[in-house]
Simulated assay, not measured.
Amino acid sequence: MTAKLYKKDVFVEAIEFTNTPENHQAIIDFAGLPISVEYTSDGVQVRVIRGAYSVLIARLGEYIVKEVDGSLRVCTREGLEAEGYALYVDE
């Protein structure tokens, strides 16, 4: 008997940083962590503060992604699509 391959679809949650007051609160609620917004010479960015030495930085238009295990990372929409993710719409 030969081995068979099985595929599992995995859902991740993602929120885009758009730099509005409502978006700031949505990111806080999404991550469950405090944030700070910085205006730098390179543009605006949000810092999700995971700990004293652990900060996640997302620039305007990037997504904060919550993995299945609850960990956070930053990705672009194009990056998510390249990884095989498509926007899921519950009908």
Rank of each mutant, 00 (worst) to 15 (best):
V68Q: 09
K8W: 06
L56G: 05
G32C: 04
F11R: 06
Y85S: 08
K4E: 03
S54P: 02
Q45M: 07
G79T: 06
P34A: 05
G51A: 04
V89A: 12
A82K: 14
G84W: 08
E13W: 02
I28D: 01
E81W: 11
M1F: 03
I28E: 10
Y63H: 14
V55E: 05
A82M: 12
Q25N: 08
T40K: 07
V44N: 13
R77D: 09
K7P: 04
E13V: 06
S54F: 12
I35S: 00
R50N: 04
E38H: 09
R73Q: 08
V55L: 07
P21V: 04
E78T: 12
Y88V: 14
I49R: 09
D9Q: 12
G43F: 02
Y88E: 13
L80K: 07
S71D: 10
T20N: 07
E78Y: 11
D69L: 00
V12C: 03
D29S: 10
L80N: 06
I27N: 03
T18V: 13
L5M: 01
L87M: 07
F30I: 10
Y6R: 09
G51N: 01
D9S: 10
I27F: 03
G84R: 12
A26L: 11
T20E: 08
G84P: 05
F30H: 02
F17K: 07
H24N: 07
V10L: 11
N19E: 06
E81A: 13
D90R: 15
V12A: 01
V37D: 00
E16V: 11
K8G: 01
S71K: 13
I27S: 01
V55A: 06
G79F: 11
L80E: 01
R50T: 06
L72E: 02
G84F: 10
E78D: 11
I15Y: 02
P21Q: 05
V65H: 11
G61V: 06
V74T: 10
E62M: 13
V37Q: 04
R59P: 07
D29G: 02
R77M: 09
S36N: 08
I27C: 04
Q25H: 03
T18Y: 07
A14Y: 12
Y63F: 15
N19K: 05
R59T: 13
L72K: 08
A31P: 00
G51D: 01
V44H: 08
L87R: 12
L5I: 10
L80R: 12
P21K: 05
F17L: 04
G70L: 11
V46R: 00
Y88C: 13
E83L: 15
L33N: 04
T2W: 00
E67Q: 15
I28S: 08
N19W: 05
E91N: 14
I57L: 14
A58D: 10
E16Q: 12
D9N: 10
R59S: 14
F17G: 00
R59I: 08
E78S: 11
